[in-house]
Write a protein that binds this DNA or RNA. Structure first.
Length: 112
DNA sequence: GGGGTGACAATTC
DNA sequence: GGAATTGCCACCC
């Protein structure tokens, strides 16, 4: 295992483990918070390699959608875990806890 | 070393 | 909002 991966993984796990319940972070945000800007694409690998359970499902795309195919089991699993924590969805898009979504709902309408 | 591959991101149209 | 494009960088043939 390369030294880089060891250090990178540890920092990423640390960041992801610190995401509070009911909140989400983007892959890029996690990478930045871990001290590795521009390593968004490496984050998924770090999550997969975690030796113990992490709230991996609290990591989503920068556009606040789930990274898996909408038809996949993984997608449904992640969505369910998030809803379980009180995360609200506007269609496939996650509504941030502190965000005011009234405008979007007026413009696009409920997507459920 | 070369080329393809991502649980991505930012920009553009 | 969506689709296409480009940048990104460790990893694995």
């Amino acid at each position: 295992m390369s030294r880089f991966k060891q250090q990178f993984d540890r920092r990423v796990w640390q960041v992801v483990a610190a995401i509070p319940s009911g909140r989400v972070m983007g892959y890029g945000e996690v990478a930045r918070a871990a001290g590795f800007p521009r390593y968004s694409r490496m984050v998924s690998g770090a999550l997969s390699r975690s030796p113990e359970p992490l709230p991996w499902y609290r990591v989503v795309r920068s556009d606040r959608t789930i990274a898996f195919d909408v038809d996949s089991d993984a997608y449904r699993e992640q969505a369910q875990l998030l809803k379980q924590e009180g995360v609200r969805f506007d269609g496939r898009k996650i509504v941030d806890a502190d965000a005011d979504d009234s405008l979007d709902r007026l413009l696009w309408g409920p997507q459920d």
